[in-house]
Design a protein around this nucleic acid. Sequence first.
DNA 1: AGCCTTGTCAAGTAGTTCCTTGAATATCTT
DNA 2: AAGATATTCAAGGAACTACTTGACAAGGCT
Lengths: 219, 219
Amino acid sequence: MGDRAAKNALFDGFSEVAKALGNGRRAELVDVLAQGERNVDDLATEISQSLANTSFHLRTLAQSGLVATRREGTRVYYRLASARVGELWAAMRDVAASHIAELDVLAEAYLGDRSQLETIDQDELAQRIDDGSVVVIDVRNSTEYAAGHIRGAQSIPIDELADRVDELPDDVEIVAYCRGPYCVFADDAVRLLADHDRGALRLVGGFPEWQADERPTSA
Amino acid sequence: MGDRAAKNALFDGFSEVAKALGNGRRAELVDVLAQGERNVDDLATEISQSLANTSFHLRTLAQSGLVATRREGTRVYYRLASARVGELWAAMRDVAASHIAELDVLAEAYLGDRSQLETIDQDELAQRIDDGSVVVIDVRNSTEYAAGHIRGAQSIPIDELADRVDELPDDVEIVAYCRGPYCVFADDAVRLLADHDRGALRLVGGFPEWQADERPTSA
DNA sequence: AGCCTTGTCAAGTAGTTCCTTGAATATCTT
DNA sequence: AAGATATTCAAGGAACTACTTGACAAGGCT
Protein backbone atom coordinates (compact mmCIF):
# COMPACT_ATOMS: atom_id res chain seq x y z
CA MET A 1 0.00 0.00 0.00
CA GLY A 2 1.10 3.49 -0.69
CA ASP A 3 4.09 2.68 -2.86
CA ARG A 4 5.35 4.98 -5.56
CA ALA A 5 4.70 2.77 -8.61
CA ALA A 6 1.07 2.26 -7.60
CA LYS A 7 0.62 5.96 -6.90
CA ASN A 8 2.06 6.84 -10.30
CA ALA A 9 -0.29 4.36 -11.97
CA LEU A 10 -3.31 5.74 -10.11
CA PHE A 11 -2.60 9.36 -10.97
CA ASP A 12 -1.72 8.41 -14.54
CA GLY A 13 -5.19 6.85 -14.57
CA PHE A 14 -6.82 10.10 -13.47
CA SER A 15 -4.87 12.05 -16.02
CA GLU A 16 -6.17 9.80 -18.82
CA VAL A 17 -9.38 11.78 -18.69
CA ALA A 18 -7.52 15.06 -19.03
CA LYS A 19 -5.41 13.68 -21.86
CA ALA A 20 -8.57 12.73 -23.70
CA LEU A 21 -9.80 16.33 -23.44
CA GLY A 22 -6.32 17.65 -24.13
CA ASN A 23 -6.73 18.06 -27.86
CA GLY A 24 -8.68 20.82 -29.55
CA ARG A 25 -10.50 18.53 -31.96
CA ARG A 26 -11.57 16.16 -29.20
CA ALA A 27 -12.72 19.12 -27.13
CA GLU A 28 -14.85 20.20 -30.10
CA LEU A 29 -16.30 16.72 -30.36
CA VAL A 30 -17.30 16.81 -26.70
CA ASP A 31 -18.78 20.27 -27.21
CA VAL A 32 -20.90 19.00 -30.11
CA LEU A 33 -21.89 15.81 -28.30
CA ALA A 34 -23.10 17.91 -25.36
CA GLN A 35 -26.02 18.79 -27.67
CA GLY A 36 -26.97 15.13 -28.15
CA GLU A 37 -25.79 12.01 -29.97
CA ARG A 38 -24.39 12.15 -33.52
CA ASN A 39 -22.92 9.70 -36.01
CA VAL A 40 -19.28 9.63 -37.07
CA ASP A 41 -19.69 11.10 -40.52
CA ASP A 42 -21.69 13.98 -39.18
CA LEU A 43 -19.11 14.66 -36.46
CA ALA A 44 -16.28 14.59 -39.01
CA THR A 45 -18.03 17.32 -41.02
CA GLU A 46 -18.72 19.28 -37.85
CA ILE A 47 -15.05 19.41 -36.83
CA SER A 48 -13.70 19.61 -40.41
CA GLN A 49 -11.53 16.54 -40.10
CA SER A 50 -11.16 13.36 -42.14
CA LEU A 51 -13.45 10.47 -41.30
CA ALA A 52 -10.50 8.29 -40.26
CA ASN A 53 -9.08 10.93 -37.97
CA THR A 54 -12.47 11.65 -36.42
CA SER A 55 -13.04 7.95 -35.85
CA PHE A 56 -9.64 7.75 -34.20
CA HIS A 57 -10.38 10.71 -31.89
CA LEU A 58 -13.74 9.22 -30.95
CA ARG A 59 -12.10 5.95 -30.07
CA THR A 60 -9.65 7.83 -27.85
CA LEU A 61 -12.57 9.49 -26.08
CA ALA A 62 -14.34 6.13 -25.77
CA GLN A 63 -11.28 4.47 -24.24
CA SER A 64 -11.15 7.16 -21.55
CA GLY A 65 -14.79 6.47 -20.83
CA LEU A 66 -15.96 9.94 -21.85
CA VAL A 67 -18.22 8.83 -24.69
CA ALA A 68 -20.36 5.76 -25.40
CA THR A 69 -21.66 4.32 -28.65
CA ARG A 70 -24.79 2.77 -30.07
CA ARG A 71 -25.08 1.08 -33.43
CA GLU A 72 -28.09 1.52 -35.69
CA GLY A 73 -27.77 -0.30 -38.98
CA THR A 74 -24.58 0.86 -40.65
CA ARG A 75 -24.40 3.96 -38.51
CA VAL A 76 -22.63 4.31 -35.18
CA TYR A 77 -23.92 7.01 -32.86
CA TYR A 78 -21.67 8.52 -30.25
CA ARG A 79 -22.92 10.28 -27.11
CA LEU A 80 -21.42 11.62 -23.86
CA ALA A 81 -21.09 8.81 -21.33
CA SER A 82 -23.02 10.85 -18.75
CA ALA A 83 -24.15 14.36 -17.92
CA ARG A 84 -21.12 14.70 -15.64
CA VAL A 85 -18.86 14.61 -18.67
CA GLY A 86 -20.69 17.66 -19.97
CA GLU A 87 -20.23 19.33 -16.59
CA LEU A 88 -16.54 18.53 -16.63
CA TRP A 89 -16.21 20.07 -20.09
CA ALA A 90 -18.03 23.20 -18.92
CA ALA A 91 -15.81 23.45 -15.84
CA MET A 92 -12.70 23.13 -17.96
CA ARG A 93 -13.89 25.78 -20.39
CA ASP A 94 -14.65 28.15 -17.51
CA VAL A 95 -11.30 27.64 -15.82
CA ALA A 96 -9.59 28.22 -19.17
CA ALA A 97 -11.62 31.39 -19.75
CA SER A 98 -10.86 32.81 -16.33
CA HIS A 99 -7.18 31.87 -16.08
CA ILE A 100 -5.70 31.98 -19.57
CA ALA A 101 -5.15 35.60 -20.49
CA GLU A 102 -5.06 35.18 -24.25
CA LEU A 103 -8.34 33.27 -24.38
CA ASP A 104 -10.27 36.53 -24.68
CA VAL A 105 -8.33 37.30 -27.81
CA LEU A 106 -8.94 33.85 -29.30
CA ALA A 107 -12.63 34.04 -28.44
CA GLU A 108 -12.99 37.44 -30.02
CA ALA A 109 -11.13 36.29 -33.14
CA TYR A 110 -13.63 33.46 -33.54
CA LEU A 111 -16.83 35.12 -32.32
CA GLY A 112 -16.23 38.65 -33.48
CA ASP A 113 -17.14 41.69 -31.43
CA ARG A 114 -20.11 40.85 -29.24
CA SER A 115 -20.29 44.17 -27.45
CA GLN A 116 -23.00 45.54 -29.77
CA LEU A 117 -25.26 42.49 -29.41
CA GLU A 118 -27.90 42.59 -26.72
CA THR A 119 -28.18 39.58 -24.45
CA ILE A 120 -30.72 38.09 -22.09
CA ASP A 121 -30.01 35.73 -19.20
CA GLN A 122 -31.80 32.51 -18.26
CA ASP A 123 -33.89 33.97 -15.44
CA GLU A 124 -35.17 36.81 -17.54
CA LEU A 125 -35.90 34.55 -20.51
CA ALA A 126 -37.85 32.09 -18.32
CA GLN A 127 -39.91 35.04 -17.07
CA ARG A 128 -40.59 36.38 -20.55
CA ILE A 129 -41.49 32.95 -21.95
CA ASP A 130 -44.09 32.74 -19.17
CA ASP A 131 -45.62 36.12 -19.94
CA GLY A 132 -45.47 35.50 -23.71
CA SER A 133 -43.47 38.62 -24.56
CA VAL A 134 -40.85 36.84 -26.70
CA VAL A 135 -40.49 34.34 -29.52
CA VAL A 136 -37.63 31.94 -28.94
CA ILE A 137 -35.78 30.46 -31.91
CA ASP A 138 -33.33 27.55 -31.78
CA VAL A 139 -30.78 28.22 -34.52
CA ARG A 140 -28.86 24.95 -34.14
CA ASN A 141 -29.37 22.30 -36.77
CA SER A 142 -32.57 20.26 -36.76
CA THR A 143 -30.99 17.07 -35.35
CA GLU A 144 -29.86 18.99 -32.31
CA TYR A 145 -33.30 20.59 -31.93
CA ALA A 146 -34.91 17.15 -32.18
CA ALA A 147 -32.62 15.76 -29.47
CA GLY A 148 -33.84 18.40 -27.01
CA HIS A 149 -34.65 22.11 -26.91
CA ILE A 150 -35.97 24.91 -24.73
CA ARG A 151 -39.69 24.31 -24.21
CA GLY A 152 -41.68 26.50 -26.60
CA ALA A 153 -38.75 27.31 -28.91
CA GLN A 154 -39.16 26.90 -32.64
CA SER A 155 -36.44 25.45 -34.85
CA ILE A 156 -34.92 27.71 -37.51
CA PRO A 157 -31.40 26.47 -38.34
CA ILE A 158 -29.08 29.41 -38.91
CA ASP A 159 -28.60 28.73 -42.63
CA GLU A 160 -32.35 28.81 -43.21
CA LEU A 161 -32.97 31.94 -41.19
CA ALA A 162 -32.47 34.47 -44.01
CA ASP A 163 -35.22 32.78 -46.05
CA ARG A 164 -37.58 32.36 -43.13
CA VAL A 165 -37.48 35.77 -41.43
CA ASP A 166 -41.05 36.38 -42.55
CA GLU A 167 -42.31 33.50 -40.45
CA LEU A 168 -41.47 35.50 -37.35
CA PRO A 169 -44.13 37.83 -35.91
CA ASP A 170 -43.00 41.45 -35.99
CA ASP A 171 -44.71 42.62 -32.82
CA VAL A 172 -42.61 40.73 -30.23
CA GLU A 173 -38.91 40.53 -29.56
CA ILE A 174 -36.96 37.52 -30.76
CA VAL A 175 -34.49 35.55 -28.64
CA ALA A 176 -32.00 33.28 -30.41
CA TYR A 177 -29.96 30.57 -28.73
CA CYS A 178 -27.57 27.84 -29.86
CA ARG A 179 -24.96 25.47 -28.44
CA GLY A 180 -23.36 27.49 -25.70
CA PRO A 181 -21.26 30.51 -24.84
CA TYR A 182 -18.73 29.89 -27.61
CA CYS A 183 -21.17 29.15 -30.42
CA VAL A 184 -21.56 31.75 -33.19
CA PHE A 185 -24.97 30.73 -34.54
CA ALA A 186 -27.03 32.89 -32.20
CA ASP A 187 -24.69 35.85 -32.73
CA ASP A 188 -25.10 35.48 -36.49
CA ALA A 189 -28.87 35.20 -36.06
CA VAL A 190 -29.09 38.39 -34.02
CA ARG A 191 -26.95 40.25 -36.58
CA LEU A 192 -29.03 38.93 -39.47
CA LEU A 193 -32.29 39.88 -37.77
CA ALA A 194 -30.95 43.35 -37.00
CA ASP A 195 -30.23 43.73 -40.74
CA HIS A 196 -33.92 43.01 -41.30
CA ASP A 197 -34.85 45.62 -38.70
CA ARG A 198 -35.99 43.05 -36.19
CA GLY A 199 -35.02 43.53 -32.57
CA ALA A 200 -33.34 40.37 -31.39
CA LEU A 201 -31.45 39.20 -28.32
CA ARG A 202 -28.98 36.40 -27.74
CA LEU A 203 -29.45 34.06 -24.79
CA VAL A 204 -26.33 33.94 -22.62
CA GLY A 205 -25.25 30.29 -22.71
CA GLY A 206 -26.95 27.69 -24.86
CA PHE A 207 -29.13 24.63 -24.57
CA PRO A 208 -26.76 22.55 -22.40
CA GLU A 209 -26.57 25.36 -19.83
CA TRP A 210 -30.39 25.72 -19.81
CA GLN A 211 -30.77 21.99 -19.33
CA ALA A 212 -28.08 21.82 -16.62
CA ASP A 213 -30.07 24.45 -14.73
CA GLU A 214 -33.11 22.14 -14.83
CA ARG A 215 -35.30 24.56 -16.72
CA PRO A 216 -38.21 23.38 -18.91
CA THR A 217 -37.20 21.51 -22.08
CA SER A 218 -38.89 19.33 -24.71
CA ALA A 219 -37.66 16.59 -27.00
CA MET B 1 -16.15 35.45 -37.72
CA GLY B 2 -16.68 31.78 -37.33
CA ASP B 3 -13.84 30.59 -39.52
CA ARG B 4 -12.13 27.27 -39.06
CA ALA B 5 -8.64 28.50 -38.15
CA ALA B 6 -10.03 30.73 -35.39
CA LYS B 7 -12.24 27.93 -34.09
CA ASN B 8 -9.28 25.56 -33.99
CA ALA B 9 -7.25 28.13 -32.11
CA LEU B 10 -10.04 28.73 -29.59
CA PHE B 11 -10.59 25.06 -28.83
CA ASP B 12 -6.84 24.45 -28.74
CA GLY B 13 -6.87 27.19 -26.11
CA PHE B 14 -9.48 25.38 -24.01
CA SER B 15 -7.62 22.13 -24.31
CA GLU B 16 -4.47 23.76 -22.91
CA VAL B 17 -6.01 23.39 -19.48
CA ALA B 18 -6.68 19.69 -20.05
CA LYS B 19 -3.17 19.18 -21.41
CA ALA B 20 -1.78 20.72 -18.25
CA LEU B 21 -3.73 18.21 -16.14
CA GLY B 22 -2.97 15.43 -18.61
CA ASN B 23 0.11 14.11 -16.90
CA GLY B 24 0.13 12.01 -13.76
CA ARG B 25 2.87 13.98 -12.03
CA ARG B 26 1.16 17.31 -12.71
CA ALA B 27 -2.12 15.85 -11.46
CA GLU B 28 -0.31 14.89 -8.25
CA LEU B 29 1.06 18.40 -7.93
CA VAL B 30 -2.43 19.83 -8.21
CA ASP B 31 -3.67 17.31 -5.65
CA VAL B 32 -0.97 18.38 -3.20
CA LEU B 33 -1.47 22.10 -3.89
CA ALA B 34 -5.17 21.68 -3.13
CA GLN B 35 -4.02 21.42 0.52
CA GLY B 36 -2.28 24.79 0.39
CA GLU B 37 0.83 26.45 -1.01
CA ARG B 38 4.20 24.68 -1.06
CA ASN B 39 7.71 25.39 -2.31
CA VAL B 40 9.39 23.65 -5.24
CA ASP B 41 11.78 21.50 -3.24
CA ASP B 42 9.00 20.26 -1.04
CA LEU B 43 6.81 19.45 -4.04
CA ALA B 44 9.65 17.59 -5.74
CA THR B 45 9.99 15.34 -2.69
CA GLU B 46 6.24 14.89 -2.53
CA ILE B 47 5.98 13.60 -6.09
CA SER B 48 9.36 11.78 -6.04
CA GLN B 49 10.77 13.62 -9.04
CA SER B 50 13.94 15.57 -9.67
CA LEU B 51 13.93 19.22 -8.79
CA ALA B 52 14.45 20.26 -12.41
CA ASN B 53 11.60 18.11 -13.65
CA THR B 54 9.28 19.33 -10.91
CA SER B 55 10.17 22.93 -11.71
CA PHE B 56 9.41 22.22 -15.37
CA HIS B 57 6.00 20.69 -14.56
CA LEU B 58 5.14 23.62 -12.31
CA ARG B 59 6.00 26.03 -15.08
CA THR B 60 3.71 24.11 -17.42
CA LEU B 61 0.89 24.41 -14.89
CA ALA B 62 1.65 28.12 -14.42
CA GLN B 63 1.54 28.75 -18.17
CA SER B 64 -1.92 27.22 -18.36
CA GLY B 65 -2.97 29.51 -15.54
CA LEU B 66 -3.71 26.69 -13.11
CA VAL B 67 -1.14 27.70 -10.50
CA ALA B 68 0.32 30.99 -9.30
CA THR B 69 3.56 31.78 -7.50
CA ARG B 70 4.86 33.93 -4.71
CA ARG B 71 8.49 34.50 -3.88
CA GLU B 72 9.76 34.65 -0.29
CA GLY B 73 13.50 35.12 -0.08
CA THR B 74 15.13 32.32 -2.06
CA ARG B 75 12.01 30.20 -1.95
CA VAL B 76 9.22 30.19 -4.52
CA TYR B 77 5.82 29.10 -3.26
CA TYR B 78 3.29 27.67 -5.68
CA ARG B 79 -0.48 27.61 -5.06
CA LEU B 80 -3.62 26.86 -7.07
CA ALA B 81 -4.69 29.92 -9.04
CA SER B 82 -8.19 29.73 -7.54
CA ALA B 83 -10.58 27.42 -5.74
CA ARG B 84 -12.17 26.58 -9.09
CA VAL B 85 -8.99 24.81 -10.15
CA GLY B 86 -9.43 22.53 -7.16
CA GLU B 87 -13.04 21.94 -8.17
CA LEU B 88 -11.96 21.12 -11.70
CA TRP B 89 -9.45 18.61 -10.37
CA ALA B 90 -12.12 17.01 -8.17
CA ALA B 91 -14.55 16.83 -11.12
CA MET B 92 -11.91 15.19 -13.29
CA ARG B 93 -11.07 12.66 -10.60
CA ASP B 94 -14.74 11.81 -10.17
CA VAL B 95 -15.39 11.39 -13.88
CA ALA B 96 -12.31 9.18 -14.12
CA ALA B 97 -13.47 7.10 -11.15
CA SER B 98 -16.95 6.60 -12.52
CA HIS B 99 -16.09 6.00 -16.18
CA ILE B 100 -12.73 4.23 -16.31
CA ALA B 101 -13.28 0.61 -15.38
CA GLU B 102 -9.73 -0.19 -14.35
CA LEU B 103 -9.48 2.74 -11.97
CA ASP B 104 -10.90 0.64 -9.13
CA VAL B 105 -8.05 -1.77 -9.61
CA LEU B 106 -5.44 1.00 -9.62
CA ALA B 107 -6.99 2.60 -6.55
CA GLU B 108 -7.02 -0.67 -4.64
CA ALA B 109 -3.41 -1.38 -5.65
CA TYR B 110 -2.40 1.96 -4.14
CA LEU B 111 -4.75 2.21 -1.17
CA GLY B 112 -5.03 -1.45 -0.25
CA ASP B 113 -8.27 -3.06 0.84
CA ARG B 114 -10.45 -0.47 2.52
CA SER B 115 -13.42 -2.70 3.11
CA GLN B 116 -12.41 -3.48 6.72
CA LEU B 117 -11.94 0.16 7.69
CA GLU B 118 -14.88 1.97 9.20
CA THR B 119 -15.74 5.35 7.79
CA ILE B 120 -17.75 8.39 8.80
CA ASP B 121 -19.25 11.01 6.48
CA GLN B 122 -19.12 14.79 6.78
CA ASP B 123 -22.64 15.23 8.16
CA GLU B 124 -22.16 12.68 10.87
CA LEU B 125 -18.73 14.01 11.81
CA ALA B 126 -20.07 17.58 12.05
CA GLN B 127 -22.76 16.28 14.39
CA ARG B 128 -20.33 14.34 16.57
CA ILE B 129 -17.87 17.23 16.78
CA ASP B 130 -20.76 19.32 18.12
CA ASP B 131 -21.73 16.82 20.79
CA GLY B 132 -18.08 16.12 21.69
CA SER B 133 -18.21 12.37 21.17
CA VAL B 134 -15.06 12.19 19.00
CA VAL B 135 -11.46 13.34 18.85
CA VAL B 136 -10.46 14.43 15.34
CA ILE B 137 -6.86 14.05 14.21
CA ASP B 138 -5.33 15.59 11.11
CA VAL B 139 -2.66 13.15 9.93
CA ARG B 140 -1.30 15.28 7.08
CA ASN B 141 2.03 16.99 7.59
CA SER B 142 2.23 20.04 9.81
CA THR B 143 2.57 22.58 6.98
CA GLU B 144 -0.73 21.39 5.56
CA TYR B 145 -2.36 21.53 8.99
CA ALA B 146 -1.06 25.07 9.45
CA ALA B 147 -2.48 26.16 6.08
CA GLY B 148 -5.97 25.13 7.16
CA HIS B 149 -7.72 22.28 9.00
CA ILE B 150 -11.06 21.08 10.31
CA ARG B 151 -11.98 23.26 13.28
CA GLY B 152 -11.12 21.46 16.50
CA ALA B 153 -8.83 18.88 14.90
CA GLN B 154 -5.40 18.28 16.37
CA SER B 155 -2.32 17.74 14.25
CA ILE B 156 -0.57 14.37 14.46
CA PRO B 157 1.35 13.75 11.22
CA ILE B 158 1.11 10.10 10.23
CA ASP B 159 4.80 9.37 10.81
CA GLU B 160 4.58 10.66 14.40
CA LEU B 161 1.38 8.82 15.24
CA ALA B 162 2.98 5.59 16.48
CA ASP B 163 4.96 7.55 19.10
CA ARG B 164 2.05 9.74 20.11
CA VAL B 165 -0.81 7.28 20.52
CA ASP B 166 -0.74 7.89 24.26
CA GLU B 167 -1.71 11.53 23.79
CA LEU B 168 -5.13 10.38 22.64
CA PRO B 169 -7.87 9.90 25.24
CA ASP B 170 -9.04 6.28 25.39
CA ASP B 171 -12.68 6.93 26.23
CA VAL B 172 -13.82 8.48 22.90
CA GLU B 173 -13.64 7.35 19.32
CA ILE B 174 -10.97 8.80 17.06
CA VAL B 175 -11.60 10.12 13.55
CA ALA B 176 -8.62 10.53 11.21
CA TYR B 177 -8.63 12.54 8.00
CA CYS B 178 -6.07 13.58 5.41
CA ARG B 179 -5.86 14.98 1.87
CA GLY B 180 -8.83 13.40 0.15
CA PRO B 181 -10.43 10.21 -1.10
CA TYR B 182 -7.20 8.88 -2.62
CA CYS B 183 -4.86 9.66 0.26
CA VAL B 184 -3.50 6.75 2.32
CA PHE B 185 -2.55 8.62 5.49
CA ALA B 186 -5.92 8.29 7.23
CA ASP B 187 -6.17 4.62 6.23
CA ASP B 188 -2.75 3.99 7.72
CA ALA B 189 -3.74 5.89 10.85
CA VAL B 190 -6.90 3.84 11.35
CA ARG B 191 -4.95 0.59 10.87
CA LEU B 192 -2.23 1.70 13.27
CA LEU B 193 -4.76 2.73 15.92
CA ALA B 194 -6.59 -0.58 15.52
CA ASP B 195 -3.26 -2.32 16.23
CA HIS B 196 -3.17 -0.36 19.51
CA ASP B 197 -6.73 -1.45 20.28
CA ARG B 198 -8.15 1.98 19.67
CA GLY B 199 -11.41 2.26 17.76
CA ALA B 200 -10.86 4.68 14.89
CA LEU B 201 -12.77 5.86 11.84
CA ARG B 202 -11.68 7.42 8.58
CA LEU B 203 -13.46 10.52 7.32
CA VAL B 204 -14.76 10.00 3.78
CA GLY B 205 -12.99 12.66 1.71
CA GLY B 206 -10.35 14.95 3.14
CA PHE B 207 -9.78 18.57 4.08
CA PRO B 208 -10.43 20.06 0.60
CA GLU B 209 -13.83 18.36 0.45
CA TRP B 210 -14.71 19.59 3.96
CA GLN B 211 -13.70 23.11 3.01
CA ALA B 212 -15.54 22.98 -0.36
CA ASP B 213 -18.68 22.11 1.59
CA GLU B 214 -18.22 25.28 3.64
CA ARG B 215 -17.95 23.53 6.95
CA PRO B 216 -16.06 25.07 9.91
CA THR B 217 -12.29 25.32 9.50
CA SER B 218 -9.38 27.07 11.19
CA ALA B 219 -5.99 28.24 10.02
C1' DA C 1 -25.20 -13.05 -53.85
C1' DG C 2 -23.16 -8.64 -54.96
C1' DC C 3 -22.79 -3.89 -54.26
C1' DC C 4 -23.13 0.28 -51.43
C1' DT C 5 -22.71 2.95 -47.25
C1' DT C 6 -20.59 3.69 -42.94
C1' DG C 7 -17.01 3.15 -39.90
C1' DT C 8 -12.49 1.09 -38.23
C1' DC C 9 -7.72 -0.38 -38.57
C1' DA C 10 -2.62 -0.14 -40.05
C1' DA C 11 1.50 1.96 -41.52
C1' DG C 12 4.13 5.93 -41.97
C1' DT C 13 5.82 10.64 -40.93
C1' DA C 14 6.34 15.10 -38.73
C1' DG C 15 6.03 17.11 -34.57
C1' DT C 16 5.62 17.16 -29.40
C1' DT C 17 6.30 15.55 -24.55
C1' DC C 18 8.87 13.69 -20.61
C1' DC C 19 12.75 13.22 -18.09
C1' DT C 20 17.88 13.56 -17.35
C1' DT C 21 22.19 16.04 -16.84
C1' DG C 22 24.72 20.05 -16.18
C1' DA C 23 25.04 24.99 -16.25
C1' DA C 24 23.03 29.54 -15.03
C1' DT C 25 20.43 32.83 -12.10
C1' DA C 26 18.32 34.98 -7.87
C1' DT C 27 18.27 35.92 -3.13
C1' DC C 28 20.03 35.57 1.47
C1' DT C 29 23.90 35.06 4.93
C1' DT C 30 28.41 35.97 6.53
C1' DA D 1 32.28 40.44 -2.04
C1' DA D 2 32.07 35.36 -1.49
C1' DG D 3 29.56 31.41 -0.46
C1' DA D 4 25.27 28.89 0.28
C1' DT D 5 20.58 27.76 -0.86
C1' DA D 6 16.67 27.51 -3.95
C1' DT D 7 15.04 27.56 -8.44
C1' DT D 8 15.11 27.90 -13.48
C1' DC D 9 16.95 27.18 -18.08
C1' DA D 10 19.06 24.51 -22.13
C1' DA D 11 20.27 20.52 -24.71
C1' DG D 12 19.42 15.90 -25.94
C1' DG D 13 17.32 11.30 -26.54
C1' DA D 14 13.47 7.95 -26.02
C1' DA D 15 8.66 7.59 -26.26
C1' DC D 16 4.32 9.23 -27.61
C1' DT D 17 0.66 11.98 -30.51
C1' DA D 18 -1.81 13.81 -34.59
C1' DC D 19 -2.91 13.36 -38.98
C1' DT D 20 -2.72 11.22 -43.77
C1' DT D 21 -3.52 7.57 -47.09
C1' DG D 22 -5.21 3.34 -48.36
C1' DA D 23 -7.00 -1.19 -47.12
C1' DC D 24 -10.50 -3.76 -44.55
C1' DA D 25 -14.99 -4.98 -41.99
C1' DA D 26 -20.01 -4.84 -40.83
C1' DG D 27 -24.47 -4.19 -41.99
C1' DG D 28 -28.26 -3.07 -45.29
C1' DC D 29 -30.42 -2.81 -49.97
C1' DT D 30 -31.55 -4.65 -54.42
